[in-house]
Design a protein around this nucleic acid. Sequence first.
DNA 1: TTTTAGCTACGAACAGCGTTCGCGTCAAGT
DNA 2: ACTTGACGCGAACGCTGTTCGTAGCTAAAA
Lengths: 240, 240
Amino acid sequence: MSEVPEVPVPPWRTSPRSRSPRKPALSQEAIVTAALEIIDAEGLDALSMRRVAQRFDTGAASLYAYVASKEELVELVVDRVNGEVLIPTADPDRWREQLREAMFAIRDVYASHRDLGRALIGAVPIGPNSLDSTERLLSILRAGGLSAKVSAFAADLLSMYTVTSGLEMGDQNTMHGATDEERGAYYTRVHDYFASLPAARFPTLTSLGDALTSGDGDERFAFGIDVLMLGMIAYTDRES
Amino acid sequence: MSEVPEVPVPPWRTSPRSRSPRKPALSQEAIVTAALEIIDAEGLDALSMRRVAQRFDTGAASLYAYVASKEELVELVVDRVNGEVLIPTADPDRWREQLREAMFAIRDVYASHRDLGRALIGAVPIGPNSLDSTERLLSILRAGGLSAKVSAFAADLLSMYTVTSGLEMGDQNTMHGATDEERGAYYTRVHDYFASLPAARFPTLTSLGDALTSGDGDERFAFGIDVLMLGMIAYTDRES
DNA sequence: TTTTAGCTACGAACAGCGTTCGCGTCAAGT
DNA sequence: ACTTGACGCGAACGCTGTTCGTAGCTAAAA
């Protein structure tokens, strides 16, 4: 390969074509969209300001006109995603089904965005869409006859469980290898590892055998919902 | 201040004192200890290979003889911490109190290590101490008469809730400012924000008022335990 | 005792990160 | 036509995890 430097393009007149090369205009909305695309494609860790800027053929510095920090960008992405969650309007006669629907809706959305759920583990999301979801979830609980205190506490508990479950499902696409084969191998390995534990030291663990690794995501999630709902109902009964 | 460079210490003979300046010998155990100290002092994000190495007056490269990667180091720290969790040996007559004790024990340990809980959000910890804890937790559940499947699923659910709660408590020391004053200001701000929401759009949210932010960590955690236990019991009753 | 072999410790470098600073350009106002 | 102001963004700073090659020590061999 020759090391001769390329002849520079005359700078005094750039063609209109190269001056606006299908470059999407910068805006907070467009930045959030690009960030979410990166997360969906490669996971939360792959998100970087430089990567986002690359999509607009510019440097990371340009983003800071529309977004205060990476932290704020992630918050905006979270709120965008919370906008995808569809929670039914409360109907007192159907509150149990509705709660179940709502929880599946939240979980499915987070499962479809890789490990984005990691971003809101310890945080209270306060974007407009997040507030809408919280409002709807709370109104379903209230429609079910739960007290203010129980509703407030339960909302926390429920969203924690839901997001974590969605995170675990979505994560499976990110971690432990990209292909089905690799993931299958990983879970077989975990299963075999539990099976290989010394029964003398871990009698319960080994006696449970397949129960530990059995059940797909839906089954485990449905179990959690049932336990939480039964618990909330029993708690409310005991309260009065 | 003078800018005169210091006279260098003659290098051809270092005193024995400076040759081994109370430098703790490198070992996996010592490295894990140092890492945990950093996490306790400054949080999980402050943990870096260089920071750990600094404590041994050496460079980050030296650590890789004892630890394969930062990821493995964190796993080792998690298992060390799981060793601090004391779960009682199962007694069928006291399984409810024991389960409660166990959950408080786990939560307290994680609350005392800042945001370390973040490290095991989507992960299945498989270190020896972690396995011991799981074994003990499962045996309590089994002693309570729960089926294999329910025990297995519930163990997941319980540790998820427990670690997340501990994380949130421990996190309060890390985030939102270091001093009590700053933290108080943060929570007042959150409270005021919720109170300031338009009641027309968020009727439930605003009507709940103080219920949303009321209750300290212990109260909220105890509520979660009650709901989970009542739910597990109701689920088991329904199962048979 | 001298030489050599092996091995551990670790400085330096690499590629990437979030964020800031200040220069250059371009558009609107005078 | 000239000035002024705002905005875009390249380059740089200090950080990250990890790898590579070597310097220096220890212990075995001659």
